[in-house]
């Protein structure tokens, strides 16, 4: 990896995320001055998906010197799916601003939006494979499955993010992004591994901002973006790479749900680090198992020894 690659795919995205989140947070504090007693996160929820999308697009430019809005190769539609993830993230975060008495309408909008995002990502990446590699019916089935995965995974992680603010939520998400690196790397999908590393850098930057801003929230928008990015990586790794193996990816798909352990009544009500540990540790275990599986499945430690 050259210096330029490192700058564009890790350093710049990390800086954009860190500075962007911090600036948005400070601006929000100056404008809205939340009451200290208000327990509800008052951070700029829309900032996370916007900043993440911007950072991801810089990384995309780092990998591809000729970025296009809608490339013929579905494997290169990262920035389209990232932008869609960011846009849906902003919309879902705006729903939280709906007055409480209309909150039911907000829920009616938010969940179908997430479902639509899952279906859109699948169709953008896999529909071009019809009819020679996948039938239209199979693509539709996969789209439905992805939408069905994204909606409950987002709901579960949003609920966790509501409780785990500041540096805590990036720590919960980090193991999933980290595990994607060996899963893609040992599947000889170098670009997937690099994008996972970029996502890892984004979350590290969010973690640092979270240390400064204890009420930073990735609820709604941020979670939606991260899961959408991981969904697109998983789909590309599974369907466009001959070396991909399904089981590590399936295990990795379960990781977001592992965090929901912290929502159990006996844990959710506790104070201190217990709910955080209950969210983070199961994710580390599940994501670690996926990474280990990917590693053990390869006879060669270096899949690029050529």
């Amino acid at each position: 990896m050259s210096t330029r690659d490192l700058l564009f795919t890790t350093v710049f995205p990390g800086l954009i995320t860190g500075v962007g989140l911090l600036a948005a947070w400070l601006l929000w504090q100056v404008i809205f001055r939340p009451a200290p007693s208000d327990a509800r996160p008052r951070g700029p929820l829309w900032a996370a998906p916007v900043v993440f999308t911007l950072a991801f697009l810089v990384a995309y430019y780092g990998f591809n010197t000729k970025p296009q809005l809608w490339p013929t190769s579905s494997a290169m539609r990262f920035h389209t799916t990232a932008a869609a993830g960011g846009a849906i993230g902003v919309l879902t975060s705006l729903v939280t601003l709906v007055p409480a008495r209309f909150r039911w309408a907000g829920h009616l909008v938010r969940h179908p939006l997430t479902l639509a995002l899952g279906a859109f990502i699948t169709l953008a990446l896999l529909a071009p494979l019809t009819p020679h590699a996948l039938s239209a019916a199979r693509v539709a089935l996969i789209a439905a499955a992805c939408a069905a995965w994204l909606a409950p995974a987002t709901a579960a992680l949003d609920a966790v993010a509501h409780r785990q603010q500041g540096w805590r939520m990036p720590v919960v998400l980090l193991p999933v992004a980290a595990a994607f690196i060996p899963v893609c790397y040992f599947g000889a999908y170098a670009t997937g591994a690099q994008f996972s590393a970029c996502l890892f850098a984004l979350l590290c930057a969010a973690l640092i901002v979270g240390l400064i801003c204890p009420r930073l929230s990735l609820e709604h928008g941020g979670v939606v973006f991260v899961l959408a990015a991981l969904l697109s990586l998983g789909l590309l790794a599974q369907f466009l790479n001959p070396n991909s193996r399904t089981w590590p990816l399936i295990v990795l798909a379960l990781a977001p749900f592992a965090a929901a352990v912290s929502l159990l009544p006996m844990l959710a009500g506790r104070k201190g680090l217990a709910p955080f540990l209950a969210a983070a540790v199961p994710v580390v275990v599940v994501a670690g198992a996926a990474a280990l599986w990917a590693f053990l499945g390869r006879p060669d430690a270096d899949p690029y020894a050529y």
Partner: peptide, 15 residues
């Protein structure tokens, strides 16, 4: 295998 995958020829989409 690497050349066939999404990094290069994307042989699934472009056979």
């Amino acid at each position: 295998d690497h050349l066939r995958n999404a990094d290069f020829f994307n042989a699934v989409q472009f056979p």
